[in-house]
Design a protein around this nucleic acid. Sequence first.
DNA 1: CAAGCATTCTGAATCGATTCAGAAGTATCA
DNA 2: TGATACTTCTGAATCGATTCAGAATGCTTG
Lengths: 357, 357
Amino acid sequence: MEHDKARKSIKLQDIAQAVGVSRTTVSNAFNRPDQLSPELRDKILETAKEMGYPGPNPMARMLRTGKTGAIGLVFGESLPYAFNDLAAIAFLKGVSRVCERVKASLLIVPTLESNAAQKTIEQATVDGFIIYNLPDDSEALVRVLERQLPVVAVDQPSLKDVPSVGIDDRQAARKAATHLLSLHHKQIAIMAMELQSDLYVGLVDTQRLEHSTHQITKLRLQGYRDAIEEARIDFSQVPIYECRNDENHAREVAMTLLQRHPRPTAILAMSDILAFGALRSAQQMSLKVPEDLSIVGFDDIPIAWQIRPRLTTVQQPLVEKGVLAAELLLSKSVTKTSKVLGTRLVVRESSGTAPTV
Amino acid sequence: MEHDKARKSIKLQDIAQAVGVSRTTVSNAFNRPDQLSPELRDKILETAKEMGYPGPNPMARMLRTGKTGAIGLVFGESLPYAFNDLAAIAFLKGVSRVCERVKASLLIVPTLESNAAQKTIEQATVDGFIIYNLPDDSEALVRVLERQLPVVAVDQPSLKDVPSVGIDDRQAARKAATHLLSLHHKQIAIMAMELQSDLYVGLVDTQRLEHSTHQITKLRLQGYRDAIEEARIDFSQVPIYECRNDENHAREVAMTLLQRHPRPTAILAMSDILAFGALRSAQQMSLKVPEDLSIVGFDDIPIAWQIRPRLTTVQQPLVEKGVLAAELLLSKSVTKTSKVLGTRLVVRESSGTAPTV
DNA sequence: CAAGCATTCTGAATCGATTCAGAAGTATCA
DNA sequence: TGATACTTCTGAATCGATTCAGAATGCTTG
């Protein structure tokens, strides 16, 4: 019927004209109620409504004020993939908790493989970025830094000059390995997340390990190594399988891993998702956990205690990481603080003494 | 050392001056490589880098072009809460898949309880909104509509003039109830999600049912009712417990529900999370599922088949809903299409024939 | 050789608000 | 009464880009 919104969208100016006041006054009506008489304000707001004014254009406002009211979040992995990762979700929950409190929106920026297409980061209208687990060599990392906005890094201990929050991955991993060793396991296998961004899958050699661009994978491996070597076991004989952080994929990889001779009596999984995959493949092969095979995970996502047997794992404060990252980003403090949160080994049902041969 | 970024941030103008060309040319260097000679372009880009130019300011660009490259997402529940809901996460995954494909960012907008604070929606710099499961009376809904941007509604069949995607909730719920009835259950209890946004918890009466502002809750209840009445059971005698969509809370509610006399032999849970809570409380009370108690969920989130006993549930295409919603939003088609996706009952281990008295 | 066409670059308008300094008018106080 | 202060409103600059129409140049072609 009406063709209100037909031509041009109406702006501040238009209602100013209609009411017969200045642009400034209309702006004040929306943003500073104390700057004008209540009656005039009501009148302005009313005619604005009548004219179908959608409110002050956010882009214009942002340009002028310089504030966007949003914080950007960049994941090291593809988005649909990140939403599979319950650890990432828990982190998101933490971030969102702060967002809600301070009334900020959360802009999740896809960082596509195609290096050319990093437009999304350049375009992101945010007041700052949280980067989560970006590989050292990622194009996205460069782009984010270029933006010259506040940045907080999560799980990326290697970045200098950037405030960060994370855990002591090496130490945490060490706990997991020490636990298995104290149960007398000698045949231990490791399921690792990506070491490099090349989609490689399979056994990892020293070469590859050295050149890892994924900090936390590298650090956790070092932690495993620390404990294993301390137990006088030759680390070079310990099979390390690289694997996407995906349950089904982990199941396949664990399958081949469990067909080795001698068969491992224990698996160090670098995430609960990997551990879960290993558990599934053990069940598929009719191996009893923990009688035949011990499994230790990492993260302690909810599923770790929901499945049976309950997963022994290294607990890290996922939600809190999100909260801290967001708070750090929002605090104007120039301090390049670097928060390291605590972890602890949670022993449940998936680990037990090594089977006697 | 350097005090480059000391005073004012540099802009297009500055590099134009430095290189000795016009603003337009510098802009073209960034956005339209074909509009200037490669040499000049390189020179511009180079000095831009030298001067530490962060690239064209996204807000200014947006203001001019009118495009933000982001789509907004508004949840009916609080954000940290939404990130607990694996059904919502699956939906998000679907949306993010499209975002990644079309190189759009995803702005998640917190819609705080405090109605005053709906600034976040007014401020959101997006090209359109996806609204997910907003209650009919929510302030957020009004605000989103006011923005006069493209909108797609998910799970909100009641909105007219707004393209939507969803399922036939009534029909889907009916399948669940019919299944239990065909197993000869007579004592059925219902665990419902929120009917109104007042944080009420407990038994639901007709009054409350009628005035529900949460469409899908209402529709699913109707579906249950359809089947139950068809089986000649008095629906008013069927206990309906309203409950937050939270596992722990569901467990408590199920606890009181299972202490009724006569004890229900079957529970219709309106989500898998509720079903999971019910399952946990059954285990706590040493009730065998499905021998003593049958449970049917809704959604078919991954956990439904990961736990034991595997959950009988109504499967709905969660990820696909996200994909479709995003695609619908991005398609310029003016058609007020309304997509209804299919559902199916997945019978697993949590439901069986009613125990003989 | 003049006309026509590409290529490369520029000037100025524009997107839609916010904000500062101050004008006009009214109330308060010594 | 005159000075001071407060309230209410306005004018104009500004945020930092994009984009259109066209100027200047060189090149082709009949």
